[in-house]
Amino acid sequence: MLIHRVFGSALVLRLATIGFKGVIASGENQFHNKINKMNYLTQSAAVALDQELFNEYKFSIDQLMELAGLSVATAVARVFPSSTHKSALIICGPGNNGGDGLVAARHMTLFGYNVGVYYPKRTPNSLYQNLLLQCERFGVNIVETLPPPEELKNQYQVLVDALFGFSFKPPVREALKPALDALINAGLPVCSVDIPSGWDVEQGPDSEKSLKPDLLISLSAPKLCAKPEILKNAKHYLGGRFLPPSIIEKYKLKLPAYPDQSQVVEL
């Protein structure tokens, strides 16, 4: 009886181990299958898709910006929740990416964060002015002077990179270099909106000194620089749940399904 019990236990343990490894292997296969089924937009395709949303489907820019910003705030909260990363600084550029950041700032205050916004080159457009006003009315701290990178850790626990989007072409303008330097050198987790700032939209980082985000939130569809072999050691979420089925078909997009009513899906 004792021998039977010993060998029986060993057999159960062996079967359990095999089963556990099988579950891991199955999970890994599902992950790789999902990644392999993804496709990625070139810079020109991303621009064309955006224009179609505006011109053919009559989305307004503020409509898409609101949905994108909500997606950004939701993804940040999934990975760096306010319970562990209470204070966030959002660094905004002058384009649509910066507008997404301003919207995300408002939503993140509602999610329980203490939010600051650094917006060094402001767009003289009523949409952006209104978004900034809304941030102020929601209690977002508008940072006029950016502290040195080494001092940011004393005030913030996570950074949101809303500096440059998929229309970016180098070089970085002098007025925005301190903002990019802060993202690179602060030693804080960085969450990039759509494209890590300073990256080539298709090739990715141009040097070891480029920004290395901890989280990327792709909007509409991932761009080429978001391929796993380029976007290393970073969480990756897709947001912007607003693409019409005909756009998905036209651009032959293979995207994972959003779960239930969620605005984001992890890739």
Rank of each mutant, 00 (worst) to 15 (best):
residue 4 H to N: 13
residue 6 V to W: 15
residue 6 V to Y: 15
residue 8 G to D: 08
residue 11 L to D: 08
residue 11 L to Y: 13
residue 16 A to R: 10
residue 17 T to K: 14
residue 23 V to K: 11
residue 39 N to V: 10
residue 40 Y to A: 01
residue 47 V to L: 02
residue 48 A to S: 12
residue 50 D to G: 11
residue 53 L to H: 06
residue 54 F to M: 15
residue 54 F to P: 06
residue 56 E to D: 15
residue 57 Y to K: 12
residue 57 Y to S: 00
residue 59 F to H: 09
residue 62 D to P: 01
residue 65 M to K: 09
residue 68 A to S: 14
residue 78 R to A: 09
residue 89 L to R: 07
residue 90 I to R: 03
residue 92 C to H: 09
residue 96 N to L: 12
residue 99 G to F: 11
residue 101 G to W: 07
residue 105 A to R: 08
residue 106 R to S: 00
residue 107 H to Y: 12
residue 107 H to P: 06
residue 108 M to T: 01
residue 110 L to C: 09
residue 110 L to W: 01
residue 118 Y to C: 05
residue 118 Y to V: 05
residue 120 P to T: 07
residue 120 P to L: 12
residue 123 T to L: 13
residue 124 P to E: 13
residue 127 L to Q: 13
residue 127 L to D: 11
residue 127 L to A: 12
residue 128 Y to P: 00
residue 129 Q to S: 14
residue 131 L to Q: 15
residue 131 L to T: 01
residue 132 L to Q: 12
residue 140 V to N: 01
residue 141 N to F: 04
residue 144 E to V: 09
residue 148 P to K: 14
residue 151 E to N: 09
residue 157 Q to V: 08
residue 160 V to E: 01
residue 160 V to W: 02
residue 161 D to P: 03
residue 161 D to R: 01
residue 164 F to L: 11
residue 166 F to I: 06
residue 174 E to Y: 08
residue 177 K to Y: 04
residue 179 A to H: 06
residue 179 A to D: 07
residue 180 L to F: 02
residue 185 N to F: 08
residue 187 G to V: 01
residue 189 P to I: 00
residue 190 V to F: 02
residue 190 V to C: 03
residue 191 C to H: 05
residue 192 S to Q: 03
residue 192 S to K: 02
residue 195 I to N: 00
residue 196 P to H: 08
residue 197 S to Q: 02
residue 197 S to M: 00
residue 199 W to S: 00
residue 200 D to P: 04
residue 202 E to P: 03
residue 203 Q to V: 05
residue 204 G to S: 10
residue 205 P to L: 10
residue 206 D to R: 15
residue 206 D to Y: 11
residue 207 S to G: 11
residue 207 S to W: 05
residue 211 L to F: 11
residue 211 L to D: 07
residue 214 D to K: 13
residue 218 S to M: 00
residue 218 S to T: 08
residue 220 S to E: 05
residue 223 K to V: 05
residue 228 P to I: 00
residue 230 I to W: 03
residue 231 L to I: 09
residue 231 L to A: 03
residue 232 K to E: 04
residue 232 K to V: 12
residue 234 A to C: 15
residue 238 L to V: 03
residue 238 L to N: 04
residue 238 L to D: 04
residue 243 L to E: 07
residue 243 L to P: 04
residue 243 L to I: 08
residue 253 L to V: 09
residue 254 K to T: 15
residue 255 L to I: 12
residue 257 A to F: 04
residue 258 Y to C: 10
